[in-house]
Nucleic acid binder design. Structure first.
Lengths: 219, 219
DNA sequence: TCTTCAATCCATTGAATTATAGAATGTATA
DNA sequence: TATACATTCTATAATTCAATGGATTGAAGA
């Protein structure tokens, strides 16, 4: 009976290793970035606004938990999620956090300043409209991330180029902008810019990971 | 632009609060126990083999993260999960851990000593057989947990009473025993006992949380 | 071969966390 | 009202973790 306790403790300790990885804000941010596709340490560090060394240390944690894989590409080392289910767990965790933590709900409301900036309709009808061309789904992430994966029917105009490429977008149809997910501010910025310029624009909170999980669920 | 970083950091910090909760082995064990139904602090402490004070401290963490709710019942205080999605996240995390951590896989194999002790078939066909009465689904958890929730068609014989109530079980049909989940040893013990006594018994790793999530997925 | 550059390893600091013991709270029962 | 009991709160020691700077590795290119 004593041995049983030890055995059990060992099992929970192993699972806690995974929970551990998801317990640091910076690691979560790195995971979200890796959900957008594979990236080098330098890219990850820059986009998470941390030092190379710190990024490397956090990535080491991810690697020892077997949640990411690495591959050398010339001078750089590329990190990618070891499995789709890692992205799914990230979505699962931040969704639960949004459900349970009022502070998080309030902080998220501030991002989409006007509540009507958000996409109200369900995913199915949005896709239907996108298929018919009634709305333009706009991916404002960097091009590499769009190429790695994007929503169906989405067009790519990175936020940085948006101002110069406004002419590519129609003024007589709604534009639905999305980015990396609910914690990424690019889509909100894009919507703000587009509205100032006279476009009809709304903000889709989902990124590819959130969308993908929702789609796989309803099947 | 500086403010944007601060805003983002705040968001990830909130999500990390949830990850934090799942980063301690003892808290995971408490969560798994709460997946079986509501329990008092004393019950939780006893079943997780920790002191009352430590259990209270861990439960406090769960409460401040709004993952559990409490209710006074006479002298005792009852804890329960605040939402079904907390149980789902627990299942999701331990499933990912089992997928990614070889150490965990090996530790789990030792529990079900003989590999053929495990239920091989899919859930649908198991339920079909249970409905027809071709197999007996046996819940070996304490009665209260069975009453709080159990698998369809399951009968309740707590592990403690099993030896004395063997006569209730048929020898001409397979018995499928389950307990709290893959880290609980009760079903494995039950199978061992039943086989020694000449029954045909196999071990279902799922608990009600695992089963419930799998069922809700395939709909 | 030598240099450059990306990334990791190692050691250190300060902060946070786990676990334990003693005091305090608040409800039920005598 | 007084006492017993379940639980929480507070304080503390031991451990672990995040972050940083310096030294090191290892492949790419001159």
């Amino acid at each position: 009976m004593k041995g049983a306790r030890k055995t059990k403790d060992l099992l929970y300790e192993q699972v806690a290793r995974i929970g551990q990885v998801f317990s640091s804000p910076k690691r979560l941010e790195l995971i979200e970035l890796l959900c957008q596709g594979e990236k080098t340490v330098e890219m990850l560090a820059r986009e998470a606004s941390i030092s190379l060394k710190l990024a490397s240390a956090h990535l080491r944690e991810l690697r020892t938990a077997h949640l990411v894989e690495t591959e050398r590409q010339g001078k750089n080392i590329c990190y990618r999620l070891a499995d789709k289910s890692v992205a799914e767990l990230w979505v699962q965790i931040h969704t639960l956090a949004e459900e349970r933590l009022i502070e998080l709900q309030m902080a998220l409301q501030k991002i989409a300043a006007q509540p009507d900036d958000l996409v109200p309709s369900d995913r199915a009808s949005l896709m239907k409209a996108a298929r018919k061309g009634e709305v333009v789904v706009l991916d404002v992430r960097p091009t590499e991330e769009y190429l790695a994966a994007h929503l169906p029917f989405a067009r790519s105009i990175p936020l940085e180029e948006l101002r110069k490429r406004l002419a590519e977008l129609p003024k007589d149809r709604s534009i639905v902008a999305y980015c990396r997910g609910p914690y990424c501010l690019m889509a909100a910025d894009a919507v703000e810019l587009l509205k100032r310029e006279g476009y009809t624009a709304i903000h889709l909170r989902d990124g590819v990971a959130e969308w993908g999980l929702a789609v796989s669920r309803q099947e």
